[in-house]
Design a binder for these strands. Sequence first.
RNA 1: GGGGCCAUAGGGUAGCUUGGUCCAUCCUUCCAGGUUUGGGACCUGGUGACCCCGGUUCAAAUCCGGGUGGCCCCA
Length: 482
Amino acid sequence: MKFKKNKNFSEWYSEVIQEAELADLRYNIKGFIVNRWLAVKAMKLMYALYEDELERTGHKPHWFPALIPEKNFVKEAEHAKGFAPEVFWVSGAGSSGKLLAEKFAMRPTSETAIMQMFKEWIRSWRDLPYKLYQDCQIWRYETKATRPFLRGREFHWIETHCAFVNQKDAEVQVLQDMKITEKIMHKEFAIPFMFFRRPEWDKFKGAVYTFACDSLFPNGKIVQQPSTHYFGTKFAQAFDVKFIDKNEKEQYAHTTAYGPAIWRMMGSLIATHGDDKGLIFPPKIAPVQVVIVPILFKGKEKVVLEGARELHKYLKNSGLRVELDLTDKTPGNKFYYWELRGTPIRIEIGPRDISSKSVTMVRRDTGVKSNVKATKILEEVNRTNDLILIGLKRKADAQFSQFISSAKTYSELKEIIDKKGGLVRTNWCSVSKSGEACAKKLKDKTTAEVRGVRVDKNERPTGNCIICGKPAKVVVYIGKAY
RNA sequence: GGGGCCAUAGGGUAGCUUGGUCCAUCCUUCCAGGUUUGGGACCUGGUGACCCCGGUUCAAAUCCGGGUGGCCCCA
């Protein structure tokens, strides 16, 4: 690694992705990249944790087609208008390239595919709640600069879509979505975040309201992570999703959607936990949890290899993802190789270890080496893995809270935004339509955005809006986004 | 949305201004053999490239036009 994470974050990020072989950016369609095994394996493990939690909370897996007929796509007017600039269209087919009678949108999100089927499946209050999720790729014709695992024209995510009998049930779902985010993204992936109710002008297109969580990069820039939306009956009305309630009355369903983008979480994972040696994976989602490096001195090869193979088999049978590195590189070279790839634990086994019936264990996050008795290896690996997750989370949380500031005036705000970044708490006139003018002014002057009002805490304003000077109705958080 | 820069082996580069010296330089990776192994070893040999289409010219990596892709800055 040539670049230092703290000094040249952007370059460090690109370098680690290329060097650790997470992705290859040389596929020659703009904004489309090839995700390589280390990244894909980690993301599959992330998907598994996320999907287990979604199923535990009653969501059923579905796979919808990637193409959405244009006439579906345009049914909900606000949604269609909001997404139109970003849609890839399939408009021709066949060897002659003949234009299709009807063009198809490559899904930029699946509301308009799913609602069509909800209409068929939902007839009675007994059919509700209907909770589904799918993991899939989506496509958005991004015009801003693309970045691997952060913004691509193709990306991988999970989307949940749920329908309920009334607003109350739907809003409970929105709260549950946020709990799931905490349980998985924070507790398991060790990515800290803060949930905001997005301002009126920054809602998901077609939503009644949007709660979105913002995470932070080490350079103080904001990266939006999952958002959850309450749609009211807007989509149900556009797609005629109706049911007969207990009182034999016809009702529109209330729908919600939640979008945890695993691909983007991978970006946050790289950025949050990595260091100057490369990646650091939280053990549960590490593609390789333990690497065994044999130290093969001349004349002692056989006994060391035997010991290494035996240990490899034993750990593998214990359910760990463990790799025995038998390549003919020198040990030092292997150390760098696996450190770059974020392997949480390295076990060295050489002649010294064989004769003392022990191994040398090294933690990726702290670099601490220890001698572990052969009989205690599994116990020690498991214990160390737990400690690594705790350590990563503590470090990430500490960094996150360092980036939360407060500003009483515009100049104070500007100074923090320019010098430090992160999220800045301040008084704001309003997050309804009337506050948009101030937000525009702010963005013109600083490029920073109003992220919204905190969801987990009721914060009361104590003064005036820092832009227009009118009495503040809300406390908002402001920052620069990727 | 506006502006600028760039494209030579898997990666990084020299050559381009002034066309011929270039069947293209160096480092790294990769392959074979030897030797070594507790923090990026070494020796010998080998493989591998001028983004695409068109133009100018006796002659194009080099000049011109277009395309594609990448990077940066501003909004």
